[in-house]
Design a protein around this nucleic acid. Structure first.
Lengths: 223, 223
DNA sequence: ATTTATTTTTAGATTGATCTAAATATTTAT
DNA sequence: ATAAATATTTAGATCAATCTAAAAATAAAT
């Protein structure tokens, strides 16, 4: 349970967690190499190591799945990452596009006491500044009834509840458009050929969002 | 100026800074090996490396001195360490004996913006929970007129302004005696042979402090 | 001042994280 | 179903941080 992982091992575990929660089961070596910005050969080595520590289920050439133990560990790292992001935005007044990089460092600080005290100080927040849920001490969290914006039909209305990507450029772009968590919008048109969407934002403004943008947004429907 | 140092390099630099500010000039390889809990051979390698980065002045067999640049870097790490300690004690309500280890990790987080915002949030504190001064952005700090308790004469009075060591056992012991920063005390007797001291604390209590304890305390005299 | 003891450095090996190039396995296409 | 393309792993090298053992320099002692 209290396995000491290196900074690097933790980052791989996190990547495996995220990839296997995005696209079903069996994460490929190449996709991992991609997100870890490294070479497949390096990934193979690391998979053997993490497998030895029972954090993942791994068979050569068959892809990798995170184990129960690995998932718990990953969730604790994610918990720390998101709590620190709340701290940085709510307490230190960073902008939401500036905190990801710093939280990437802070998430590796090892002190269970620190996490619990930080959580208490922040008032047990349930989501980070981008709308991602914060797992509790036991790794539990609940996601509200949110759907990808791309699944919305013309005429439907939703509140922005989550921005999937941490890319500062996206976040700054949304700032410019005055779109933030909680912003209400109505889908006016969907362009078939490029996936772009025409929306009306709560202040009455009409915006055109590209598919790249739309794919990073998640909304909760309302009447 | 903006040299990227590894976690390890930063720790060596900090150790060199502390050692060369304690015992004059020319820190020895062995003393460094001692404080870094490693072997002299390892230290030699690291000194060659830090010397190459102009952070120290080093001649083989002649001991090491920190350079201006190295000192600036060390002071920034110390600044971060002490600011985080204030955060942990004042904001998260850790006890003063619990924070050193955690701050040892936090001091390596790389983000100049974070340090400045943390400093502002904490209200620009000038000392950490153990009474050590916090350098400002430019590495400047001032120490009050404080003297080692061992230099006090019988009959003199002082306020505790600094506990030199971070050892949790010492800090817990002081807690038990109800001695904290700001505690006033009067030297009643000094035992020649073992360096122990009989003191009267502000609440009227009479205590006997061993030389080990006395050597870690620094007081400011008052009438 | 020469010998002895201590300190410091160098040489050579190990471990973790990485790389490139080569080998092997799997998947896809014809 | 076999060949071609793609994905993955292994082999062998490198770099940083460490170690032990041996060599070299300095300091201490007689």
């Amino acid at each position: 349970m209290d396995l000491e992982l290196s900074y690097t091992e933790e980052n791989y575990l996190k990547a495996i967690y995220h990839l296997s929660n995005g696209g079903a089961s069996g994460v490929s070596t190449n996709s991992l190499a991609d997100t870890m910005q490294t070479k497949p050969a390096t990934v193979s080595d690391m998979l053997r190591k993490l497998s030895g520590k029972k954090l993942i289920d791994y068979e050569k050439y068959k892809g990798v799945n995170i184990s129960e133990q690995g998932q718990q560990h990953a969730l604790q790292i994610i918990r720390k990452h998101r709590l620190w992001e709340v701290f940085l935005v709510d307490i230190l007044h960073f902008n939401w596009d500036e905190v990801h990089e710093i939280a990437e460092q802070l998430e590796h600080i090892k002190s269970p006491q620190l996490v619990e005290k930080l959580d208490a100080f922040l008032g047990y927040p349930t989501m980070d500044p981008h709308g991602d849920p914060i797992p509790d001490t036991h790794g539990h969290f609940n996601v509200g009834p949110t759907s990808p914006m791309s699944a919305f039909l013309v005429g439907e209305k939703g509140v922005l509840t989550c921005v999937v990507s941490d890319d500062p450029r996206l976040l700054q772009y949304l700032d410019k458009l005055q779109i933030r968590l909680g912003t209400k919008m109505k889908i006016l048109e969907k362009e078939e050929f490029d996936g772009s969407v025409k929306v009306e934002v709560e202040n009455g403004e009409i915006l055109y969002l590209s598919s790249q943008t739309v794919n990073q947004l998640s909304l909760t429907k309302f009447a």
